[in-house]
Nucleic acid binder design. Structure first.
Lengths: 408, 408
DNA sequence: ACCATTTATCTATGGGTTAGATTTACCCCC
DNA sequence: GGGGGTAAATCTAACCCATAGATAAATGGT
């Protein structure tokens, strides 16, 4: 019944990941502390740390303790093990971020992208230029790259199957990307990337079930259950932005009507402002980021713009109702909010959204739910997809058995 | 990060459950066949079968093979190991079903229930009377009962926590039920029960992710991911019937507006008929089962009632849109439909629902989705909750480590 | 130089699995 | 009646995981 039977190697793999997560959280720590943090015995921690030292993933520094007893050795992730690149392919830009092996950002580069970039060659070229520029900025030779993670919107692949079925367009992307970059790559979609960022750096470390919701032009949810990303049958899970808020409601970019995104995406918020005050000057701001920035500015004391305030209130209600659907169906412990709309407007949105979720969720399902702005900083898509690339690298060197989706 | 680390005992537990599921599916089988079915080695199957034989869960019958070679021993679940009772506490009835240890139905009894049965004593009394009547009908002494599973609507409990938080009303139910029945009991909600039935007897055996949707007075979804029931932080997952279909739409029984249940529950379908043909005689049929039965009758050839046909079409569209939300968020491989509305109207609903899901789901997310009537026969709530009771019994005798939610 | 203390490592023992050897129980044939 | 071939069932050595507690290492204090 379990589609993939777990073996004792999986147990060891989990132990290694637990130790790596504890190291990421602590920055530097000791074997005894790792035993306390992970619940593993000191013998197991010793064995796992030995494996990671041998693999060059972890380094140690002998530290005189300044007290009696055997001196303590501090451990940390080996930043110098190599570089990992995370690439966020969005609608209007392609951003490549170089991380060290401790997943600290080293350098970044961005190239503009035409929104009609479903032409394979243009995407491949843009990704290659962004990666090359970022690596140059980081001073990293190609042989120092452990892996490149590339987030492609809408990419879909059969998880774990022996013959993955993928839309031809995406297959061509992957093949061409591999040829062009000449580096080990892994491809996934942005929702899985942000979920991975939350799992490794955010609330996913502390909670069994977390949903991280991205608000921007597009809107979606990364779902973490029992310490793993929910991918779904076709790696499509989390497309909550295209679940219904209002049957036959507002037209959505996807061609359907009434989607959550049509109400709480940046464009949806502009539509809400148009409904509140059709002649409002902000209703005709053409660029979404400018629009959201202007909303934030319009809310500054001492005189917040009443139409903008009403827009925020309505948006909070729509968002609360949509999050209540996630609560009703998935019932997570926490929901985190991420994305550039949240950075700009979170202070205004979050308190109202919390109230709205509790009001809109059935029964008292949302009574204990925590809704908060994500603590994952920077570009969480790039961070997450780089983390997926690191996991893939660790899998390739036999340190973890987690099945990272293959871009064959 | 994994909330509960898996140990080698968990691996053995999974092996035992795999063997048990294979036995349930096959009825009777051989060790070699079990090895082929489960993928375990013949040595492991031998060890597992030995454990199950020792525990009296499985029996063997020597069978001459009629061919050369060592004769084959047939194995089957030991029906005589004891009896398990599954109790479905619904709004208007309490039904107790007695199963043997191979989960075949032996006898049943039903008592009427007042819809205002949130009075603890009335529920406890009704459950006790139903269980006593069913056991009498089965000729089963109390000491022959391995466990009683009781499905209580709305029951919630913290899964796996050391100090479960549960609404007081439900706590009182559990305490009083244990006192009154004097039998080992486990309590869960109907959505978890139907998911368990689908996992053990339906599509959950063959697919990694399945959602089983119950349509009746109430509407909800049992969610199976990676061979396990999705419970959620407060055991509330699957309340899809109270996710939104239409913001500010039809009033729902739960006090909110626009819930899926208000459109595709039995009462919702009657509201749809009222919208289609306000003077239709069926619009005022008072009892929901009578109404649904009358709908089915009105659809018989050669002259199906046009208003009823239109009602079915609209309902299929609403249901398709609501299922599309499950596809967008959870992305399962299959969706099965169950419940008395489905038994009565499935032939008319399912083809249209399939088309609607594909049309309403974003992109081609639903392209490969299978939507079908569940193959789990009988009362799937009672079957499922009895299966949970069997799992609990197996856990109590140390044969599985699966954490069945405790009704302490 | 020795002792107490603390950290790190080692070891025997517990759990799981499998490949392949061995045993068992049959049928067929001489 | 016995031997050979065959297929099922069982056993065994070797692999994986974990931990409790013993042992070793490295320090500071006396």
């Amino acid at each position: 019944m379990a589609p993939t039977r777990r073996t004792s190697r999986d147990i060891r793999s989990e132990s290694r990941l637990d130790v790596l997560h504890a190291l990421l959280t602590a920055g530097e720590t000791t074997r005894n502390e790792l035993a306390r943090t992970t619940g593993l015995s000191t013998a197991t921690v010793a064995t796992v740390v030995s494996d990671l030292l041998t693999g060059g993933i972890v380094t140690e520094a002998r530290v005189a303790s300044g007290r009696v007893g055997r001196p303590t050795t501090l451990l940390r992730l080996n930043q110098d093990r190599g570089r990992i690149v995370g690439v966020d392919v969005a609608e209007t830009y392609i951003r490549a971020v170089v991380f060290d092996a401790a997943l600290d950002e080293v350098a970044a580069a961005e190239v503009a992208a035409d929104e009609r970039h479903d032409e394979t060659e243009e995407v491949v070229d843009g990704v290659a230029r962004a990666v090359d520029a970022a690596l140059a900025r980081a001073g990293t030779p190609r042989d120092g790259v452990l892996g490149v993670g590339i987030s492609l919107p809408g990419s879909m692949q059969r998880w774990g199957g022996s013959s993955p079925v993928m839309p031809n367009a995406v297959w061509r992307h992957v093949d061409r990307l591999r040829e062009r970059l000449g580096l080990p790559i892994v491809v996934d979609n942005p929702l899985k990337a942000i979920a991975t960022a939350e799992l490794w750096f955010g609330q996913g470390r502390r909670h069994s079930s977390t949903i991280t919701v991205n608000l921007g032009t597009g809107v979606g949810a990364g779902i973490i259950l029992n310490g793993a990303i929910l991918r779904g049958a076709t790696n499509f899970a989390g497309e909550w932005g295209h679940s219904l808020l209002a049957l036959d409601g507002r037209p959505c970019r996807c061609g359907r009507r009434g989607c959550v995104e049509a109400y709480v995406g940046a464009l949806g918020m502009q539509r809400t402002l148009e409904a509140v005050a059709p002649e409002h000057p902000l209703a005709s701001v053409p660029l979404q980021r400018d629009f959201i920035g202007a909303l934030a500015a319009a809310l500054e004391p001492p005189e917040p713009d009443p139409a903008v305030t009403e827009t925020i209130q309505r948006t909070a209600r729509y968002l609360g109702a949509a999050l209540a659907d996630l609560v009703a169906i998935v019932n997570p412990e926490t929901i985190t909010l991420t994305g550039w709309t949240v950075w700009a407007l979170g202070d205004h949105l979050v308190p109202a959204v919390r109230r709205s979720v509790v009001a809109e969720a059935p029964g008292d399902a949302a009574a204990d739910l925590e809704v908060e702005v994500s603590t994952v900083r920077g570009n969480s898509v790039a961070t997450g997809i780089a983390t997926i690339a690191l996991e893939r690298f660790l899998s390739d060197v036999g340190l973890v058995t987690t099945r990272v989706p293959t871009a064959l």
